[in-house]
Write a protein that binds this DNA or RNA. Structure first.
Length: 884
RNA sequence: GGGCGGAUAGCUCAGUUGGUAGAGCAAUGCCCUUACAAGGCAUGGGUCGCAGGUUCAAGUCCUGUUCCGCCUACCA
């Protein structure tokens, strides 16, 4: 069924295996969740990308991390489900389609609501959801048979149900308040949907004369145009400057209206002039003041940002033109006291960047306080963990100061609010099903609310609506609460917080056990990627260039908790090289292992084998721990280092002698089996990170393999860990390194074989003797000889490892000057360390307070250094003899 | 205004109970040694932002401080 790699390719080619294996995974049904399958449930719902979206770096990181978790869980025998789908993204999508229409010269109003909605659906069918196909390029093990859309039938039902339930509990209400209005999108926005930025504007001081003819009061404002709608001036009742003014009447300039001075503690005496103009219809604070004092409200800016008829002669002007004009007129009238530069924050619509206008308006709200309480408690009690934990504080902060959530939007694309108005009795009927007549007065055909719900209302239900809620489905029973939610910290409030509230309210359970928040992916310079900056790196291009696995591994390695990621081609290239390394190691394995190679691990392992397996156990633990604690970079690094710098650099080199034809067949076969087994384990270990190449190589290996996706993840066996063997091997490697160092530093040509003379106590030499072949092969030595204690390494280059002297005779070749330099460097290094160690050991307080094992280690270190220095010193003397 | 994060090798960053500072890339030297030049071997490089404190011992804990970045907020 599968094409086997013939071993002729010199490098790994990702393209062919990626397509092949994704198709294979899907068609085998491996990604499809079955609630009847055994194993503890492990569930993830994907943060649904917007239907309008296309894959960007943020998705790539997000999806990769989830895929690592899902594959890992699956390989550990869990019953996994990864729910996938898209979000209808109300305003964003509507804007996209409106822009399209505009190209045809049509405004949505001309089209009418129904036709427009149809148009959006058509657009969604055609170009929406391409992002989901792009996820496949990443290898995402999503359950495509359960793909959902926030506006599909089931989820729409969930939305209506949730709305009705909340309404009936009094948690949803309708009322006139100040909301954020986008004059471009023509809709209300929630507080979160407004992003603030610093703006260098002015603070204008304007005199409001007293009606009676006095000086009046000077107010300060950043938005003079709103004065046309002023209905009062407020001062702090404790402010002595205005002690006599409260209750007096002022004449509102330009409008010639009479307005009162009121006293309100909200006013900060320190700011500006200590007097605030009150515009109840266009400022949230002023609105509250007006409520407290029973002041009227005058809307002077309309839904499009144009001055209303109530703005007098400014009616019809744009709000910003009006500002200039008002200021000019005030100056002309001598009422502009002064204008000072002032930096304040202005809010912009997060979808279209238009400056938002606070406006009094009739809207629907969710009463959030009662919902926030359990959501806070759930995190406080640990039912849901937020990782990294530092985000919990931010979460609490926001939840504790939460304000009611404006959920109605005056757009057409979205879930229409399931509320109906009876024109006869003026009552509101909230019902999931459209009532045929008013239940209060019997009037026929009540009219449905025009507004739709905030997109985040439906996404707030995502973890359970996708599993069938409000029905009690088997999936909901099996997979909810979900195990982990992986998302960017930027939507902690927008989405995570809302899911917590809605989940607890609707299901009585938290929506997820763990919330893993990852950071942003930036460009190589650390700048946020954006179309306007032109620094966007397209994940698909990276994949085309380097392969999915290299790309995924880069993301994993860079995904240190909570830290932003800087992405660049150079990075990916480095890990592409790692993929090739894995591939090359595979070729090596395939050169030696074949169908006849034993499937089981042989019993009588060599020390070298025991070493690599001992190390392997530790690495398995490290990787497992890393993934389980969401420390993906730790896991990735552990894998990388082990594969490249232990398995490839040392192990493969060390076993080469035992794979050669002259080795006894039995031993050779044994070695092949061990090699194959170790490599198989590596493939399995790497699979969650780099699924394609591992699956490919897995099937290239001799023997019948099922999908690696469905194979058990390696577990460590403590009994296989052998600290003594690890220590011995470290020693052996140190000797090899010492000889290599001599060769390199003294410029011994690689072609030239050397002799190694070892001098030292026999018990320290015995291990080296047992592995003489390695000692010969790796540093390219002709022979190893063991010399007596009276041997004088005249004309040798020397090093000291573990108390034995490693001598390399270089008759005629040695540069004594160079060798003396080399020895001195080593002596200096050891001396420096010895000084540190001795200093510490001379400290009585250290001896008295430090734990015994620490002191012991240091003493051993001291002894070893002294021994080493003594020998190095003698050898240096010897070399110096030749110099003088 | 409040909160959070960062400051460690030339660059980008790890460093989880305090116990001799690590990686990748870059750099330097030598090598086409039959798995791999997308490679191998070896080497150089850091007073861990600054100032105090706790401790036998601090990159790691505490206090203060400077410079960046982000989030949040009803000073008009």
């Amino acid at each position: 069924m599968k094409e086997k790699n013939t071993g002729t390719d010199k490098t790994y080619n990702p393209k062919t295996s990626e397509e092949k294996w994704y198709a294979e995974w899907v068609s085998s049904g491996a990604f499809h969740a079955d609630h009847l399958r055994q194993g503890e449930a492990y569930s993830i719902v994907i943060p649904p990308p917007n239907v309008t979206g296309s894959l960007h770096m943020g998705h790539a990181l997000n999806v990769t991390l989830q895929d690592v978790l899902i594959r890992y869980a699956r390989m550990n025998g869990r019953n996994t489900i990864w729910v996938v789908g898209t979000d209808h993204a109300g305003i964003a999508t509507q804007n996209v389609v409106e822009r399209e229409l505009k190209k045809e010269g049509i405004a949505r109003q001309q089209l009418g609501r129904e036709a427009f909605e149809e148009r959006v659906w058509k657009w969604k069918e055609q170009s929406g959801g391409t992002i989901l196909h792009q996820l496949k390029r990443l290898g995402a093990a999503c359950d495509w048979e359960r793909e959902r859309f926030t506006m599909d039938e089931g989820l729409s039902r969930a939305v209506k149900e949730a709305f009705v339930r909340l309404y009936e509990k009094g948690l949803i209400y309708k009322g006139r308040y100040i909301i954020n209005w986008c004059p471009r999108c023509h809709t209300a926005l929630s507080d979160l949907e407004v992003s603030f930025e610093e703006n260098k504007g002015s603070l204008w001081h304007i005199r409001y004369p007293e009606e009676a003819g006095g000086e009046g009061i000077v107010v300060a404002t950043t938005r003079p145009e709103t004065m046309l709608g002023d209905t009062a001036v407020a001062v702090n009742p404790k402010d002595e400057r205005y002690a006599g003014m409260i209750g007096k009447t002022l004449r509102l300039p330009l409008m010639n209206r009479l307005i009162p001075v009121v006293g309100d503690p909200m006013v900060d005496r320190e700011f500006g002039t200590g007097a605030v103009k009150i515009t109840p219809a266009h400022d949230a604070n002023d609105f509250e003041v007006a409520m407290r004092h029973g002041l009227p409200s005058v809307r002077v800016i309309d839904d499009s940002g144009i001055m209303t008829l109530d703005a007098g002669s400014w009616a019809g002007q744009d709000r910003f033109a009006c500002r200039e004009s008002v200021v000019a007129k005030l100056a002309e009238d001598g009422l502009l006291v002064r204008e000072e530069p002032y930096v304040n924050n202005i809010g912009r619509c997060y979808r279209c960047q238009t400056i938002v206008e606070p406006a009094e308006s009739m809207q629907w709200f969710v009463k959030t306080k009662p919902l926030a309480e359990p959501a806070i408690e759930a995190v406080r009690s640990g039912q849901t963990r937020i990782i990294p934990a530092q985000w919990e504080k931010t979460y609490f902060e926001w939840m504790e100061n939460i304000r009611d959530w404006c959920i109605s939007r005056q757009i057409w694309w979205g879930h229409r609010i399931p509320a109906y108005h009876c024109s006869a009795c003026d009552k509101t009927i909230v019902d999931a099903e459209k009532p045929s007549k008013c239940p209060y007065c019997g009037q026929q055909d009540p009219k449905q609310e025009e507004d739709v719900l905030d997109t985040w209302f439906s996404s707030g239900l995502w973890p359970f609506s996708t599993l069938g809620w409000p029905d009690k489905t088997a999936e909901l029973e099996r997979y909810y609460p979900t195990t982990v939610l992986v998302t960017g910290f930027d939507i902690l409030f927008f989405w995570v917080a809302r899911m917590m509230m809605m989940g607890l309210e609707c299901t009585g359970k938290v929506p997820f056990r763990d919330v893993v928040l990852h950071a942003l992916v930036r460009d190589a310079k650390g700048e946020k990627m954006s179309k306007t900056r032109g620094n966007v790196i397209d994940p698909l291009e990276v994949i085309d260039k380097f392969g999915t696995d290299a790309f995924r591994f880069t993301l994993v390695i860079l995904a240190a908790q909570g830290r932003d990621i800087r992405m660049s081609d150079d990075r990916v290239e480095g890990y592409r090289n790692f993929m090739n390394k894995l591939f090359q190691a595979g070729r090596f394995v395939m050169m030696h292992a074949d169908e006849t190679t034993a499937r089981e691990l042989p019993k009588n392992l060599t020390v070298v084998d025991r070493w690599i397996f001992s190390r392997l156990q530790r690495v398995i633990d490290e990787i497992r721990k890393g993934i389980e604690e969401y420390r993906f970079n730790d896991a990735g690094h552990a894998f990388y280092h082990f594969v490249w710098h232990e398995f490839c650099d040392w192990y493969l080199e060390m076993i080469k002698p035992s794979l050669e034809p002259e080795v006894a067949a039995q031993d050779r076969e044994r070695q092949r089996a061990v090699l194959l087994r170790a490599y198989e384990t590596i493939m399995a270990l790497g699979h969650p990170f780099i699924p394609f190449i591992t699956e490919e190589l897995w099937h290239t290996l001799p023997g019948d393999h099922g999908l690696l996706y469905d194979t058990r993840y390696p577990s460590s066996d403590a009994a296989v860990i052998d600290a003594d063997v690890e220590k011995d091997m470290e020693y052996l490697m140190d000797v090899v390194r010492a000889v290599r160092n001599i060769r390199s530093e003294l410029n011994v040509p690689p072609s030239r074989k050397v002799e190694i003379r070892l001098k030292g106590q026999s018990d320290r030499l015995s291990f080296l003797k047992e592995h003489e072949e390695i000692l010969r092969r790796l540093p390219r030595a002709e022979q190893v000889v063991y010399v007596n204690s009276d041997y004088i390494p005249k004309g040798d280059a020397t090093a000291v490892v573990n108390g034995i002297e490693v001598c390399v005779p270089l008759a005629g070749l040695i540069d004594f000057d160079q060798e003396a330099k080399r020895l001195r460097k080593e002596i200096d290094k050891s001396n420096a360390e010895l000084a540190r160690v001795t200093g510490q050991l001379r400290n009585d307080k250290f001896i008295a307070n430090a734990p015994e094992d620490i002191v012991e280690t240091l003493r051993n270190r001291q002894a070893a250094l002294e021994e080493k220095l003594e020998k190095l010193g003698k050898n240096l003397e010897l070399v110096s003899g030749y110099l003088s």
